[in-house]
């Protein structure tokens, strides 16, 4: 292959948003050749008790692109060391190791997407499906002085859910944030959205 030594991948970094963690690196270029990569990880246990042990990543041992979704490998809130090497046929590069171990408690939590709709007097909310680790705290209130704020905990996104039965003529407002048990953190609140329904009062 005309390549004596395969260079090790460089510029390893992890991007983590809403508990989805992606390891990226600069691709190793060898003209007209397809380079494969292998990713391995070590949790704090492995680095403390058996530092020679590295565990192959679930999805990227091997992989072709210069990135790897390591979400399924990061299963505890401890620092994880990560390393990558390139392979071309029988040639393998040295391992490159992430400079600073990654801990999932550093993930960026964004306010969740939400869709507010009305069905008659019913206020309906549909939340972004962020996966099983997320719970949603929905705050809703009637827009008038001294109005009481109600809170509803929604366990899963992706399904339109009835929030409350509105009174005609008054605006009803909603905002939502997420909570992740595994790291004990919540996101900022979303923008507030308000809706109003016209018509006669509903006999209860």
């Amino acid at each position: 292959d005309g390549v004596a030594v395969l260079p090790a991948p460089q510029n390893l970094s992890v991007q983590s948003t809403n508990m989805k963690h992606v390891l990226t690196w600069s691709p190793v270029i060898v003209p007209e050749e397809i380079i494969h990569y292998s990713v391995e990880y070590q949790g704090e246990y492995e680095s403390l008790y058996m530092s020679h042990i590295w565990i192959p990543s679930s999805w990227c041992s091997p992989t072709q692109g210069p990135e790897c979704d390591i979400t399924d490998d990061i299963t505890a809130t401890v620092p994880y060391s990560l390393r990558v090497r390139a392979t071309l046929g029988s040639l393998t590069s040295a391992w490159s190791t992430l400079k600073h171990p990654f801990n999932r408690n550093s993930t960026i939590l964004t306010p969740p997407g939400m869709e507010i709709t009305k069905d008659g007097f019913h206020l309906v909310i549909k939340l972004e499906d962020l996966g099983p680790q997320f719970e949603f705290f929905v705050a809703y209130w009637k827009r008038e002085p001294g109005a009481k704020e109600h809170v509803k905990m929604v366990r899963r996104g992706g399904i339109p859910v009835h929030l409350e039965t509105m009174e005609p003529g008054a605006a009803h407002c909603v905002k939502v944030r997420t909570f992740v048990k595994a790291i004990g953190r919540h996101s900022a609140f979303s923008q507030t959205e308000c809706v109003k329904v016209q018509g006669e009062a509903l006999p209860l």
């Binding site: 709709t117 069905d119 008659g120 007097f121 019913h122 309906v124 549909k126 929604v154 399904i159 339109p160 859910v161 009835h162 039965t165 509903l202 209860l204």
Partner: peptide, 22 residues
């Protein structure tokens, strides 16, 4: 509710009631 959304109730109690129905 007519295949478009759901009403959810939940808790440890034994009595629940869905209100505001047609």
């Amino acid at each position: 509710i007519n295949h478009t959304y759901q009403m959810h109730l939940g808790g440890k109690q034994r009595e629940f009631e869905f209100f505001g129905l047609t």
